[in-house]
Design a protein around this nucleic acid. Structure first.
Length: 271
DNA sequence: TTGATTTGACCAAC
DNA sequence: GTTGGTCAAATCAA
């Protein structure tokens, strides 16, 4: 009402991970610390109608990632919409525990380009209050056994992006797939010791052979999940997701690409 | 049968 | 008036 149009400025983009929640970024890290940083009280909408308010007075933070679906929390998709001026649809997710635990966390996933892998902008709203411990350990194989200091540690999870998206879009999505991402500052993994990924975790040949790339992620804020391969022996984590450990030198490395964190888009959206 | 996803409609924010 | 976020019925898959 009185406030001028709230654009992305509304969403706090924090480059520094001062807050280390489970929000880490898998790719570039421009996310803001959930919790406590927002002066506003994330008071849940009291009335159902309020819940439909557009981004306004709601704590939110943005991050760019190649693995938008992988941040350690369980999400349920509740909507998808084509956005004006955007070539890609926006996906709407909310915490699977929303009802069980009144967790208000939600996120919007917006693909930003068509690269390989594509970069996504993920806007989180409200911090998780479900206290669920996320992050199962994915099937993963380090592509680079020993990243040099300051380098990214690339891990690839599972199959191709296409596969994953196809699955996701079709029935495979039935099982709420986990999204995992780690925060960078809070908990840095050491190169010599990647997270507790079970040794027996490997990728499908296709995945490991694919040159196409993978995203990078930063170390988990919380102790890496212990060997939890896919919860149901499946492909829960056999996805195109991957991680990168280490460095927060300010920008992410993606294969040969280097992109600037967060506001690289400079206020981006035109929405 | 159950539970997640899809998709169009509704409605508030701009 | 337009756009974006959410709802909810229909659909689908395990």
């Amino acid at each position: 009402m009185a406030s001028p149009r709230l654009k992305r400025e509304q969403s706090f983009d924090f480059e520094e991970s001062s807050s280390q929640e489970a929000m880490g970024s898998a790719a570039s890290a421009s996310y803001s610390p959930p919790g406590g940083v927002f002066g506003i009280s994330p008071t849940p909408e009291s009335s159902p109608r309020d819940g439909r308010k557009r981004r306004k007075d709601r704590p939110s933070w943005v991050k760019h990632t190649f693995t938008p679906h992988f941040d350690g929390h369980l999400w349920r998709k509740y909507g998808q919409k084509n956005i004006k001026d955007s070539a890609f649809p926006r996906l709407y997710y909310r915490c699977s525990y929303r009802e069980d635990k009144q967790c208000l966390a939600s996120k919007l996933v917006q693909q930003e380009n068509d690269d390989d892998p594509p970069l996504y902008k993920v806007t989180y709203t409200y911090e998780h209050t479900c206290n669920t411990t996320p992050v199962p350990t994915p099937d993963v194989v380090a592509e680079q056994p020993a990243p040099a200091p300051g380098d990214a540690y690339l891990l690839r999870f599972g199959s191709s992006q296409v596969d994953r998206e196809q699955q996701q879009q079709r029935g495979a999505a039935r099982r709420p797939f986990m999204m995992l991402s780690f925060d960078s500052s809070s908990h840095r993994l050491h190169h010599e010791q990647p997270p507790a990924f079970p040794p027996n975790h490997q990728l499908p040949a296709a995945a490991s052979s694919s040159p196409s790339f993978t995203a990078e992620a930063l170390p988990p804020p919380a102790p890496p999940p212990t060997a939890m391969h896919d919860v149901d022996g499946g492909d829960l984590f056999s996805t195109w997701d991957s991680f990168r450990y280490g460095l927060d030198d300010g920008h992410g490395h993606l294969g040969s690409h280097v992109y600037l964190p967060d506001d690289c888009s400079g206020g981006d959206d035109n929405y």
